[in-house]
Design a protein around this nucleic acid. Structure first.
Lengths: 234, 234
DNA sequence: TTAAGTATTATTGTCGACAATATTTGTTCT
DNA sequence: AGAACAAATATTGTCGACAATAATACTTAA
């Protein structure tokens, strides 16, 4: 089975479980982006006390899914185009470096495993051409493997523990399903090659271009959406 | 007056104040790195309830100064050489990108202000040659200005709100006072020039080299310390 | 004496109530 | 009628107590 987030550990406390539920609700848009959060109401809905709810809210704040102001309260972050661009620029920096480190630090076994994963995705792609889900999951898996391969706990925490929740939120809310299957596959392949060659500089460059391409793809889709919306409301 | 952290806002709630005190205590080493945190004891010492202490602990965890395990408790992060290297590699990625964005997004007024600041530091340097404090503060100010100049809230939050607390902690605990005054000054000068020329690519490259140089400087110092320690214990 | 198991203690997680602050509603004056 | 001020309401911040889990100390058996 493919993990949603390779860095997360089992939710043992009730605050953990509520945190995960709220996380899903925010990412999927069940809790509207930008909406205010009422502690008494949420606590009642999840049948927990405000203390443990606040504990859960603190974790949501840690991965930048909500924002708190003293004596005022919490709001779900809102998804803006500016925010999306900022997020992808940050990803470019962090994942680019992670990829460079992966080229330096990954074990041969890890590299072989990633190559096998890519081959498997290639088969699935050939089989279920057009079905975006596996490709989507494949993309996420690929990026996680590279990040973990950096063997840099700081980078791993920042990207997997914080940024990726926001990335998933934007993907859900803007309805992105990474439809650049064949091109992304080729890019992944080239990146793995660079890592396998232990060419950190090239690996970083390729990863940055890969993410930049993804960003531009999303930008185009948003521009397109805005265009059709304008036509509808006209 | 020079701000310690340009992104922080006034501490209004008592949890905020305790958070700041604990932050100082951890950064300066008054709370030993790696030591366990007893909630009842700390709450008693600061004369607050456990609830507000836990609120403060949550913020400390947000900037990676403590680590929590469910049903076990919190520990102050420990300063290892590996952690230091990971931190600087992450800085290289994030501040490099911030510098590139600053070259694209800073206003002319901001650039002029930064040039003026550099000139002032030059005077101070000439006047108080050898006094490292102002140079240290100058370095911090310079980096903050560049980061804020990126106009990228994501980068600003990550670097100023999270990484820099750890950076200060390492600087304090390892007794670093950035003694590469003249060289750092020249590097700052070149970076500002690149920003002023709106050359994002060069700006990023120079910033990355600047941070890498700082990292190597610290590495050398640590190696030197270890050497003398070995001699002492021999 | 050591090891394992059990009982005890201490620490963390969760709860409901109160205090302090912000927001809303209602009133009064211009 | 609109704006400014005041009262009432609701929300967040803080507190102390209880429940659940982990760490410790003790007892017992091999």
């Amino acid at each position: 089975m493919l993990l949603e987030n390779p860095t997360k550990q089992a939710a043992v406390t009730t605050a953990d479980k509520v945190f995960e539920q709220l996380q899903h609700a925010i990412v999927e848009g069940d809790m509207a982006a930008g909406s205010k959060i009422s502690e008494p109401e949420l606590a009642k809905r999840y049948e927990i006390s405000r203390s443990t709810l606040r504990e859960a809210l603190n974790r949501l704040e840690k991965c930048h899914l909500i924002e708190r102001k003293a004596n005022v309260g919490s709001r779900v972050v809102d998804c803006t185009i500016e925010g999306l661009l900022e997020l992808y620029i940050t990803r470019e920096a962090l994942e680019g470096m992670a990829c460079r480190q992966a080229a330096l630090n990954m074990t041969e076994a890890e590299i072989e495993h990633m190559q096998a994963m890519l081959a498997q995705h290639a088969d699935e792609k050939a089989l279920q051409d057009g079905v975006a889900y596996y490709q989507e999951q494949g993309d996420v898996d690929f990026h996680y493997k590279v990040i973990l391969g950096s063997h840099n706990q700081q980078l791993i925490n920042l990207i997997c523990g914080q940024l990726y929740h926001l990335v998933r939120m934007y993907r859900c809310q803007f309805g992105m399903h990474s439809p650049r299957a064949t091109r992304a596959f080729r890019e992944h392949s080239n990146i793995i090659q660079a890592i396998s060659d232990r060419d950190g500089e090239l690996a970083e460059l390729l990863m940055r271009r890969h993410i930049a391409a993804s960003r531009k793809n999303i930008e185009a889709k948003i521009a397109q959406q805005n265009g059709s919306e304008k036509q509808l409301t006209k």
